[in-house]
Computed example of a mutant assay.
Amino acid sequence: MIKAKIYRKENKICAFEISGHAGYAPAGEDIVCSAVTVLALNTVNAIEAFTEIPFQAEADEKKGGYLKVSVPLEGMADEKTQLLLETLALGLSGIQEEYHKYLTLKIEEV
């Protein structure tokens, strides 16, 4: 199962964390894992390409299945960064609705 967390501070997204594997299908055929991976990596790439906001990213590149991204205070105030992060949250929420056995999404206030 994939576990995703969106961290909010003062109603703004300040970080997200994704871990695990869906187990929907064998590796290479798992549409749930693929969808979550594309959403997460596209969000990171878009923040890097379309904003000037520095961010911190942690990933388990050996085993895979883990990514945590944090934005600084200026990222919380930046409209483009927030739009991109809210788009990620919306996409993950949609996947959870359809494939709730394979993805849990939690929103935490920090």
Rank of each mutant, 00 (worst) to 15 (best):
K9R: 09
K9V: 07
K9S: 06
E10W: 00
E10Q: 11
N11R: 12
N11T: 11
K12H: 13
I13N: 01
C14A: 01
A15V: 05
A15I: 04
F16D: 11
E17I: 01
I18Y: 06
I18E: 00
S19C: 13
S19Q: 15
S19V: 08
S19T: 14
A22M: 13
A22R: 04
A22E: 03
A22S: 15
A22C: 05
A25G: 13
E29T: 13
I31M: 11
I31F: 07
V32I: 13
V32S: 02
V32P: 08
S34N: 01
A35L: 02
A35T: 14
V36G: 02
V36S: 05
T37I: 06
T37L: 07
V38C: 10
V38F: 02
L39E: 10
L39V: 04
L39G: 07
A40E: 12
A40F: 05
A40T: 15
L41R: 03
N42A: 12
T43W: 09
V44I: 15
V44G: 06
N45G: 08
N45V: 10
A46Q: 09
A46G: 13
A46H: 12
I47K: 04
I47V: 15
E48T: 08
E48V: 05
E48H: 07
A49L: 11
A49C: 03
F50E: 05
F50P: 02
F50G: 00
T51Q: 14
T51S: 12
T51K: 10
E52C: 00
I53V: 15
I53N: 05
P54E: 15
P54W: 03
F55C: 05
F55D: 06
Q56H: 08
A57G: 00
E58H: 11
D60M: 06
D60L: 04
E61I: 12
E61T: 15
K62M: 05
K62Y: 02
K63V: 04
K63Q: 15
G64V: 09
G64L: 12
G64Y: 11
G64Q: 08
G65Y: 12
G65D: 11
L67T: 02
K68Q: 04
K68C: 11
S70N: 08
S70R: 12
S70P: 00
V71T: 02
P72V: 12
L73R: 11
L73K: 12
E74S: 14
G75T: 12
G75N: 13
A77S: 03
A77H: 10
A77V: 03
D78C: 10
K80D: 10
L83G: 04
L83F: 06
L84M: 13
L85Y: 10
T87R: 02
T87N: 15
T87K: 00
L88R: 01
A89S: 14
A89L: 05
L90K: 06
L92M: 09
L92S: 03
